[in-house]
Every structure is written in structure tokens, then in C-alpha cells.
Design a protein around this nucleic acid. Structure first.
Lengths: 155, 155
DNA sequence: TTCTATTTGGACCGAAACAGTACTGTTTCA
DNA sequence: TGAAACAGTACTGTTTCGGTCCAAATAGAA
């Protein structure tokens, strides 16, 4: 399906919400204001804390706060924090490839990965909050005629 | 991990190999020349046949051949054929979203999806075969400063 | 100083999706 | 008529993901 995990989706929602108030917020509060189940939002924030995207404050009156302003956090960074590195195939960066010699296209996936990364790096959480993406990028990169192949062009 | 399924990877390899010879090819032959296990390559080709990307010829001396030249088949089309539609989140196109009212960013993901689709639609199988991607796109879209966030900028 | 309430941190477990395989049926050509 | 090759379905093992539970840590009050 080429979809990212629910956790990443939750992470974006939680981060945007977190960026709207400039004070430490607990996961229960964040859960109530976002509608995300409390254990889940806690887990997401935990991961984000280890990745340095949010800063955690333990103990009573603790909570989380953003480590960077919304404008400096890209979608790509969030995805990498939750889902791990963005690389569409396993046969990159030293990964296993049992058919490396025969597959013929050695390392071509790197370009695809770079394209994805670029697209995701150009969108920040601030863009998600507002509708500033189209304005900033002038129409979302390349035109993409009709995705090519087939009369159907299944959307 | 935001990675596509192995089947899709296999599909690209098989299709590129299939595009190198302009005649019907059986899955055993394709299996030997690509190194992909025979049952798997057969499964992939079956799926691609139902999606109209390859044309199947049944019976003795049958096999598969491309329905379109390599230049007209985009990576996005292959991914859609194998993995299904490209939409990073489930809360698009009428999907479930239990927190739609509270999450705050209604439909913002559509832009992200569009960015991904554009990036993947701009790359064809012919580009995978050669190294023509960079040339054609003039450097793969947007600059992407350093993916933003954090001093590490985990690649 | 000590105790307690609050909150994060890390480990664990069940469920779902996926990759891979095998088998049977249908079609076509020699 | 027989062999070759695709089409479809079903099954199984593995991996990953989503969610839950318990332990460690901190701030504040007594």
C-alpha cells in the first residue's frame, strides 16, 4: 500500500498540536485534545523524545515540548523518527540483495529514494498546520502528466 | 520503514528485464535471468497481467510481454499495481478517521501524497535501466537543504 | 528530609499483514 | 491427444505493527 504507519500519522497530529502551545504538555492532555488514545500518544511521544524531536520532562508537572519550531520540522524527519530510515528497497546501504549481480539495476533505487526524501523534506509541520505547501513549492514539484501507463490511470 | 514491498521490487526487476527483449518470455526464463524464485516471479507477473502492465499469452509457447514500452511505465504505476494505491495515510479518500474533528489538519495529507506520487510518476522503468533520471529531472526536484531538524540529520 | 503523586522510560504480548509456496484448473500449440 | 504455460485459490511461516503493562525518575508538599 506504500502507506506510513499509524504511529507516524499520530506523531504529526501530536506535534502540530504540541506546537500550538509553547509549554510542556503531558500525554494525557495531548490525548484528550487530539482524540488519539492515551497509551498510543504516550508511545509516540516517547519515540519522538529519543529522536530529539521533542524534549521530555520527567516527574511531576513534567511533559513534552517541541525541540524545534514547527517550521523547522519536516515530514521526512518525523517519518524517519517513527518508521526508521526512508529507503524503499532493502538492497540499499549495504542491505541484503540475493540477486544483486543479476538484477541489473544496481543502486538505481537510490534515486527513487532521494526523490521521495526530497519531496518529504520540503514539507514542514507548519505547512501541515496551515495550507502553505502549495504556495511555498509553487504547485508541488513536477507536473506528473497522468502517472503514465494504461488508459485507466488508476488513481 | 516506509519501504515498498519486496514484490514491487521484484516487479521492477522483472519488468526491466522483460523490456530488454521484445518477445514473449516465460516466468521460468525470467526467474533464471533475474535470480528471483520462480513461484514468486510467476506471482508478480500474474498480478501485473491483471493490471494491464504486461500482456499474457497462455498455452504452449506462451509467456509474458510488456504492454507498454519501458519509457511509458512509471515507478508509480508499478507500485500501484502491486501494492495498491499510494496514499500515505488512511484518512484520505473516505477512509476512517476516528479523530477527524480533533486532529486539526483535515486533508493536509493529500498534499504529501501528491508530492510522493509526483516524485514516483516522474521516474520510469527506462530511467531505472539507465541512469537517466538525474538528467531528465535536472537534479531530482527540490533542493532539500538537509531534511531539517536536529544537528544529526540522520540520513 | 522524607514521602507521595505524577509522569516518563522501557519491556512485553497479541494481532494483523505480508512473503512465499503449493496445488488444481484452463488454455493453446505441436 | 499430449505437453507446455498461464490463472486462480488456498495455505503457512514470518515479520512487523499496534497496543498494554510495569518499573524508574522527578517535583512538590508535609
Amino acid at each position: 500500500m506504500l502507506k506510513l504507519s499509524k504511529l507516524t500519522d499520530y506523531a504529526v497530529v501530536a506535534l502540530v498540536r504540541l506546537g500550538q502551545k509553547d509549554e510542556v504538555t503531558t500525554s494525557p492532555v495531548l490525548s484528550r485534545s487530539t482524540g488519539i488514545p492515551e497509551p498510543t500518544v504516550a508511545k509516540v511521544l516517547k519515540i519522538l523524545a529519543t529522536q530529539g524531536i521533542v524534549i521530555s520532562q520527567r516527574g511531576a508537572r513534567g511533559g513534552y515540548r517541541l525541540a524545534y519550531p514547527l517550521e523547522e520540522i519536516s515530514i521526512a524527519a518525523v517519518i524517519q523518527a517513527i518508521d526508521g530510515p526512508i529507503s524503499l528497497t532493502t538492497c540499499v546501504d549495504g542491505g541484503e540483495c540475493d540477486a544483486r549481480s543479476t538484477c541489473g539495476l544496481g543502486g538505481q533505487w537510490d534515486m527513487v529514494n532521494a526523490a521521495i526524501r526530497n519531496a518529504l523534506s520540503a514539507i514542514t509541520l507548519a505547512d501541515m498546520k496551515n495550507h502553505t505547501v502549495l504556495d511555498r513549492l509553487g504547485g508541488l514539484g513536477n507536473p506528473a502528466p497522468s502517472m503514465l501507463v494504461g488508459p485507466e490511470a488508476t488513481a
